[in-house]
Amino acid sequence: MMADTNPVPSTVSGDFEPRIVAFLCNWCSYAGADLAGISRIQYPPSIRVVRVPCSGRVDPFYILKALQQGADGVLVSGCHPGDCHYLTGNYVARRRFAVLHDLLGFFGIEPGRVSFSWVSAAEGERFAEVVREVTERVRALGPSNRLADARLTEKAERAG
């Protein structure tokens, strides 16, 4: 899955435009993104969406791997607590994300590289807002380098 992400670092093309991988649950946040789209709500084109059945499907590994493979930020979004299509998937996910969140902080990874949100299918405006917020935060942080695989950057630089 992640092997397909373009390894060229976003800085190569001049201005820093963050590249953010967004894991969106099928039932709420993906539908929220869809609603934002069909409502023609503007938000930055910084996100690359990966649709997942449930936020509970998002293994913390995916998030770390995205950062290793060159994402400047990651957004994970699912149904609001109590609204999970599978009833409790997001509650279980929340504990996992809490561990990852605290561990990232411990490792000294900038808070804001990885963001979590709950966005329902009816919240198109909120989805756009979350993306704007996350994009601005990552833009302010600059390109991600702590977890990134330096071999990919070198390769991209060699390729010009």
């Binding site: 409790t88 809490a98 963001s115």
Partner: peptide, 16 residues
């Protein structure tokens, strides 16, 4: 096991 369980009141200060 804590990671197979949850509490609906688990802290979520890190979630938007």
């Amino acid at each position: 096991l804590p990671l197979t369980a949850f509490d609906s009141e688990d802290r979520e200060e890190f979630i938007r």
